[in-house]
């Protein structure tokens, strides 16, 4: 599904590398937490998987493709199979809930019939049935994140990347979001989630990958947030 082979990445004008010699593999259907303090390389890790950045050395394979060799015009095709969710939701404030989700399908040229059918389905799945015509501003943070997840999942991606999806939410709401991500994971979608939320990681007992100053320092199945001795 995802493979990092000796990946290093240094941003221009910075002497410290963001990632150093990271190698790991994530299987299909796994749920993986990516932890580490700010600046440890989590975001770079996620951006490399989306091919928003390229490696300096080493190779990143996602969904069987070597992203370093993927030509620019093929990148959109790859991203259609990857859903993304962010801490700040990134919804369009002037579109309704349903329109926000439909937007993701419209811009990849899906026929209108498909959109009319799949948008209510996915909104139902994330627990927003009946709120199709609300504007994002009228929703709570947790609900907005559900819209974002619906948008990421509406195209049934094989991989869902979540960058601190509960970072802006209170603990109780976060639990709801995690349940939703878990449900999505159970449909067979691989989930990679970067987080700072210790409680969640400890509760879920999934695979934990920890980065520290760009190095892979821990890769533990059924792990917790902190070190276990």
């Amino acid at each position: 599904m995802i493979r990092f082979d000796n990946v290093s990445k240094t941003y221009p004008k910075q002497n410290r590398p963001a990632l150093r010699d990271v190698s790991l593999e994530i299987e299909k259907g796994e749920f993986v937490f990516l932890v580490g303090s700010s600046g440890s390389g989590k975001s770079t890790f996620l951006r490399l998987m989306l091919r928003e950045e390229r490696t300096d050395t080493g190779a990143v394979h996602v969904l069987g493709k070597d992203l370093g060799r993927l030509s620019n015009w093929k990148v959109p095709q790859m991203r259609r199979q990857v859903g993304t969710v962010f801490q700040d939701f990134r919804l369009l404030p002037n579109k309704t809930v349903a329109q926000n989700v439909a937007f993701a399908l419209e811009v990849i040229g899906k026929p209108r019939g498909t959109i009319r059918k799949t948008v209510p389905e996915v909104l139902d799945l994330v627990g927003l049935a009946g709120k199709e015509d609300r504007m994002p501003g009228e929703l709570s943070g947790g609900e907005q994140q559900r819209v974002a997840i619906a948008r990421a999942f509406v195209n049934r991606p094989l991989l869902l990347i979540a960058d601190e999806p509960t970072g802006n939410l209170d603990p109780q709401t976060s639990v709801g979001i995690m349940k939703l991500l878990d449900r999505i994971n159970r449909t067979g979608t691989t989930v990679v989630m970067a987080t700072h939320d210790q409680q969640i990681v400890d509760q879920m007992r999934k695979r934990v990958i920890e980065l520290e100053q760009g190095r892979l320092v821990r890769d533990q199945s059924r792990g917790v947030y902190g070190y276990q001795h």
Binding site: R80, Q81, A104, N155
Partner: peptide, 11 residues
């Protein structure tokens, strides 16, 4: 968002 959901650069 268009970039993230995989809209082509043409689109």
């Amino acid at each position: 968002i268009m970039r993230l959901v995989g809209a082509s650069s043409f689109y």
